[in-house]
Structure formats: C-alpha cells, structure tokens
C-alpha cells in the first residue's frame, strides 16, 4: 500500500515536470506530436526505472559500505551516462524492433535533469531498493502522462489563432502553466 502511495505521489502529486521543473528541455522539445511524445515517455520510463534501481544498489552496497557518500553526485551522473550507453547497445543487439522505436530518444535522456533528480531524491528520502524503483517508475509515468497530454494539446492549438509573439515556446509554457494548475487538484490525494 505504501508503495502505491509512493507511485501515485511521484506520478501525479509531485509531477516531475509540472511541479518539480525537472526534464523541461525534452518536455518542450519533443511534445509536438503524440506519437513522438509517447515514444519519448516510453524511453524515459525504461531508463529512469533501471537508473533508480542501479543507483540505489550502488548507494547501499558501495557508497555507504565504504563511507564515501559524498561522492554520490559524481558517481550517479557517471553511472547514468554509462547506463544509457549500455541500454542502447543492449537494445540494439537483443530487441532491434524496440530499439527502432526508442533508440533515438535515449541519448536525449542522459543530460536530462529528471534522471539525476530522481536518483538524488531516492537518496534524500532514504528509500530502500523497492521504494526507489517504484518512485522512479512513478516519476517516469508522470513525465509520460504530462508530455502526452501536452502533445495532444499542441496538436490541437496548431490550428488556433495565436498572437504572433506567443507562437512557439511561449504558448507551450502557458499551456504547461495551466496544466500545472490542473495538477494542483491532486495535491490532497495522499494524506
């Protein structure tokens, strides 16, 4: 039950993009069409869940054991970069169809604040292994939900009469702000 609360909290209440402002670059850049957005979301779920698991293990069994937890930032970012490389190579060899679908988004995720952010939050909240994985999964699902909704809205407003200076990024940000307000409705969900 506690795990469910963590997942829902991560996905909706503390939505990674709309409430914590992590992962904004891909959010604005990749949300033009619903299928690219869904593809990006899928890749993000994949990477963040694995990254949460791996960083949690490394923290517990290496950093804490050797009492070098102050190296967490450096170690985490290197691990995440290496992980994305491995995932890409692994997918290419074993599941080429999945690689075709997700492959182009994977390098995009490495410098994404969201992955490092989730790893650091897991440590900050002292989550065990399972809670870290669920938190990571929930966060990524929240990212996917928001990016797909954004893509859907963007496809529709493309035909609207937008003021000249608001075309492009500004209208996307206004939409994101309205979505953030909508997601406020979730704030009493977990108590």
């Amino acid at each position: 039950m506690n795990l469910l609360l963590i997942a829902v909290g991560a996905a909706l209440v503390n939505n990674v993009v709309l409430s914590q402002f992590l992962g904004l670059c891909p959010f604005i850049g990749v949300s033009k069409k619903v299928d690219t957005a869904a593809g990006m979301g899928g890749a993000v779920i994949f990477v963040i869940t694995i990254a949460s698991a791996v960083t949690s293990l490394i923290y517990t069994f290496i950093l804490e054991k050797l009492d070098i937890t102050y190296l967490q930032t450096i170690v985490f970012i290197l691990v995440i970069a290496a992980l994305v490389q491995f995932v890409e190579m692994f997918l290419k060899k074993t599941m080429p169809s999945l690689y075709q679908a997700l492959g182009v988004y994977l390098p995009l995720i490495t410098t994404n604040c969201a992955v490092l952010g989730v790893a650091l939050i897991n440590v900050q909240k002292s989550y065990g292994f399972l809670s870290s994985v669920i938190n990571g999964f929930g966060t990524a699902v929240g990212f996917t939900i928001s990016i797909v909704i954004m893509a859907g809205i963007r496809e529709k407003i493309e035909y609207n009469d937008i003021p000249e200076s608001f075309k492009g990024t500004p209208i996307v940000l206004v939409t994101a702000g309205l979505m953030a307000m909508a997601f406020f409705g979730f704030s009493g969900l977990i108590k």
């Binding site: 500004p170 209208i171 940000l173 994101a176 953030a180």
Partner: peptide, 13 residues
C-alpha cells in the same frame, strides 16, 4: 509552480 511557467512565457513573448 504555474506562475513560473506564465512569467517565463511572457518573458519570451
């Protein structure tokens, strides 16, 4: 949070 988006949007506009 939403305010941040609106302020930035107006800035870029």
């Amino acid at each position: 949070a939403p305010g941040a988006f609106f302020v930035l949007a107006c800035l870029i506009a």
